[in-house]
């Protein structure tokens, strides 16, 4: 799949997942790769950008086993950006489905 396209989808998935609950990097990677095939290494560049653009913040929290983990938390700004992306995605997928349906109808 087109990487630029995939990046956009990945961004949306990350925002939705940390909206549901705060998560650390590895946890996020596992949750995404359950549904989507991705190079997990590409998650961290995205997370850094989202943090820089203030869509999310990070904090360290102790874990029972081992060193503290860096958790990502959605900000209000991130929440409205997520809503915007979801709307875009829904519109996009409706349009694509429509297109496919119309194209295949005449077969």
């Amino acid at each position: 799949m087109n990487t630029q396209f995939k990046k956009g989808i990945l961004e949306l998935c990350v925002l939705v997942l940390i909206y549901k609950k705060d998560q650390y990097g590895y946890e996020l990677a596992q949750n995404i790769s359950k549904n989507i095939d991705l190079a997990e290494g590409s998650l961290y560049p995205l997370l850094r950008r989202l943090t820089k653009e203030e869509y999310c913040t990070t904090y360290l929290a102790e874990s029972k086993e081992g060193p503290p983990r860096k958790y990502y938390q959605l900000t209000d700004k991130g929440k409205s950006y997520m809503d915007f992306l979801i709307k875009e995605w829904e519109m996009f997928s409706v349009n694509v489905n429509e297109l496919i349906k119309e194209a295949l109808k005449d077969e």
């Binding site: 990097g25 590895y26 990677a29 961290y44 060193p67 983990r69 860096k70």
Partner: peptide, 14 residues
């Protein structure tokens, strides 16, 4: 950045 990847390795190995 390297800290993040190190953490990822630690979590994965656990």
């Amino acid at each position: 950045i390297l800290y993040d990847y190190r953490e990822h390795f630690d979590n994965g190995m656990r």
